[in-house]
Design a protein around this nucleic acid. Sequence first.
RNA 1: GCUCCCAUCGUCUAGUGGCCCAGGACACCGCCCUCUCAAGGCGGGAACACGAGUUCGAACCUCGUUGGGAGCGCCA
Length: 466
Amino acid sequence: MSFRTRFAPSPTGFLHIGGARTALYCWLEARRRGGEFLLRIEDTDRERSTDEAVQAILDAMAWLDLDADAAPVYQTQRLARYREVAGRLLAEGKAYYAYESKEEIEAMREAAMAKGEKPRYSGYYRDRNEPYREDPNRVIRFKNPQQGSVVFEDKVKGRIEFANGELDDLVIFRSDGWPTYNFAVVVDDIDMGITEVIRGDDHVNNTPRQINIYKALGAPVPEFAHLPMILDKEGKKLSKRTNSVSVMEYRENGYLPHAILNYLVRLGWSHGDQEIFSREEMARLFDVADVNKAASRFDTEKLNWLNQHYLKTDDPQALAPEFEWHLERIGIDPARGPAPADVIVALRDRVHTLKEMAEKAGIWYGPITEWDDKAVAKHLKNDSAAAVLATAKARLAGVEWKPEPIHQAIEQVAAQLELGMGKIAQPLRVAMTGTQVSPSIDHTIYLAGRAEALKRIDTALAIAQG
RNA sequence: GCUCCCAUCGUCUAGUGGCCCAGGACACCGCCCUCUCAAGGCGGGAACACGAGUUCGAACCUCGUUGGGAGCGCCA
């Protein structure tokens, strides 16, 4: 049988960061093993599932470029199949109808808790062989083995054993006629030919129940790999109240898909001391068996570092489209200013995200809207500013409009006036930006364009002399 | 309460009985470079949760303690 993994989100919200890592690991594992990666939408909870959420998940997967090898499978379209399999279990005496109301079940649980036991179903209808009847409370329960134990070798956690006595007869079909999670998952994974189930470790407790269903169905049991959780900075569960959890929110905040993937692949997994991984390296080196057992915390500082790393090393042209997306998002028309790739080169050493970059880039796509008083007082209102600006203007008027020639022109101004670069660059910087912070002065001038640069020098000259 | 899982610098991790008085990275601090801010270079502080055992030898093996987490639904 060929190797096959799947990512199976339930569409009750956007794709969050933990889900993205699970998807990545599934994808990576499939790629390394030369197998297939499939996507399944677990939408049997019709109360909470939405089409918007399905689309949001698909969009996020596409943005991360985690491509599935087949069209997604939707559980809501497989109802007939679930009924068929449940019917078979019923016919073989491996499942039975039960008629307790939700209130009765609740009372049962409380009674068990009161006795210091694990809350579970009593098994009242298990062996009663009561005739089938129409009843609003009718559910189908799986006859879980009562003796022995279930043992499985988890690829990340190691050997895990559960006593069957701890497990009760779980509902596999609800009274509303839909299958429950634990049942649908097994039927789907069998039908889809899944050989390795990779999911969050909040599912370890479900695994023995599922294994028992596999066995009842006479199907081969896949391998399991349960990934530890991702916690927030404080070591608490990630919550959208206090953290960015949606993958697309990271896009909006200016992160690159590759940076997110690189960050996620190293969160819980490593390959010696290596920190930077291309997608190809990840796919070649990653092995889910090497994933750590312990939960880890999400550290935005390290993500920032990685994001800047890719900002600095990726081809500016390749980065341009995503950067333009950010410019447009804050109301800047990329057509009304310098080439985005040039802006990226000027700013990539100075920001961690494309969002920051877009914000800082505004100065080249529109007029100076604000003059920093301190900057003006310090660098424009001094003895040499007017001469610097006038001399620079003259030199810049005829120079070839590229960073390097501009750089030389400015050095000539310094030589001519016998001033240090600090005395030259700062007045020009204030002239170009209205502030005393910007990229290197040659790039700052270059990006403004010749006409606009000269215009801004005139304006600054007026301020300096006024 | 019960079941299951986890435990190396602030954080992500290397480490699978001697190479470790524990290595790398992020963050932090200092110095250098420097037209501002960065980036970069160099250097620094910083951890094996605790206690027993096994062993000539334990971060690595065993047991216990403590501390975290997950699950216990007709949600997934």
